[in-house]
Amino acid sequence: MSMKNILIEKEENVAIVTINRPTKLNALNKATIEELHHAFNELDNDKTIKAILVTGSGEKAFVAGADIAEFAHFSETEGKELAAKGQALLFDFVQNLGTPVIAAVNGFALGGGLELAMSCHFRIASTNAKMGLPEVTLGVIPGYGGTQRLAQLVGKGRAMELILTASMIDAETAKSYGLVNHVVTQEELLSFSKGIAIKIASNSSVAIAKAIASINANYTDGKNGYEVEISNFGACFATEDFKEGTTAFLEKRKANFPGN
C-alpha cells in the first residue's frame, strides 16, 4: 500500500510511525486511518519488530483531531458507520495489537488524536502537549472510543468533566490523572520513548502479547480477566520463549528469545 500520510522508520527492533500531515496538524481523515491500520497490521506481522512508537510530524501536534470537513454533512446512519469502521480499523485494532504500541505525544492531542493515543498501550508526552476531547463544541460526542477509554484511564468523574466542558489539560495534569506515564521535553521525547521501547523489545514478544491480552480482558465486557490470565499463563509454558527464558535464568545468562 502506498503511504501518503504516514512515515515508517525501523531501528533496533522498534518501528516509528509518524503521522505526516503537518499542514492539517496531522488530523485524522479516512485515508490516514486506513494507512495506519495497514501499517500497524504489517508491523505486527513483522517478527523483527518488537515495539512500535506512534507520533506526529512537526512540533505542534500529535494529532489535532479528526478531519471535520469529511463528515460535517453526514446523516445519522453515516455517522454510526464512521464511528464503527474507525473503531474496528484503528482504535480497537491498536488496543488489541499483540505488539506493544507507545504514543509519543508531541503536541496537541485532541479529539480523534487523544482517542488514538488512548488506544495505544501507554503514553509519553512532551512538556508542550495539550490533550482534550472537545467534540461537544461541535454538537457531537467522541466516537472513536473516547467516552470509554478516558473513563477507564482517569476515572468517571474526571472523564465527565473533561468531555462535558470540552477542556484541554496540559501534560503535567495528564500525568497526575494517569493519562500519560511520563513527561519529558520535546527534544527528549523520541529518544526517551525509544529507550522504553528497546527495553520492551529485549523481553519475550510472545509473553508480552499474552500480557496485553490479559490486561485488556479486564476492560472487556463478558470476559473474566482472571480466567484469561490463567489461560494465557498456561499457554506460555508451551512456547519456545518460555523454554529459553527459564533455561537462560538457570544458566545465569541473558535470554535470546526466538519469538515463538
Rank of each mutant, 00 (worst) to 15 (best):
G111P: 06
T32C: 09
A125F: 12
A213N: 10
F233K: 04
H182I: 14
D92F: 01
A151H: 11
I215Y: 00
Q186W: 08
A31C: 11
A64E: 07
L110E: 11
K50E: 08
K156S: 14
A217E: 02
D46K: 01
L189V: 13
A255D: 07
A31W: 04
E42F: 00
R123I: 15
A31M: 12
K50R: 12
I141R: 06
K194C: 15
N106Q: 13
A103E: 04
L150C: 05
E172G: 12
I215M: 02
T32P: 01
V184E: 11
G65A: 10
S2D: 11
D44M: 03
M118P: 06
I169A: 03
E244W: 00
A235P: 00
L36S: 04
E59M: 07
F40M: 07
I208A: 05
A61F: 03
H182Q: 12
I215P: 00
M1F: 07
A238K: 07
K24R: 05
A201G: 09
I141T: 05
V228Q: 01
D170H: 04
N232W: 04
A159F: 08
E76W: 12
G195I: 11
A207G: 12
I169C: 08
M168T: 15
N260I: 05
M168N: 14
V54F: 01
A39V: 09
G146S: 03
G143R: 03
K24T: 05
D44Y: 03
D92H: 03
Y177E: 15
V14K: 07
K24N: 05
A166S: 13
N20G: 09
I6R: 07
E227W: 01
S126F: 02
S214W: 04
N181M: 14
I198H: 10
P22W: 00
F257C: 08
K194N: 14
V206T: 12
E227T: 01
R253E: 10
I215W: 00
A104T: 15
A72K: 09
S75R: 02
K10W: 02
T147K: 11
N5W: 06
K4N: 13
I8V: 15
E135N: 15
G139C: 00
E35S: 03
T246F: 09
I6K: 12
T165G: 06
L116N: 12
G132Q: 10
N5H: 12
K4A: 07
I49K: 02
F192R: 15
S119A: 15
F192A: 13
T246L: 09
Y219V: 02
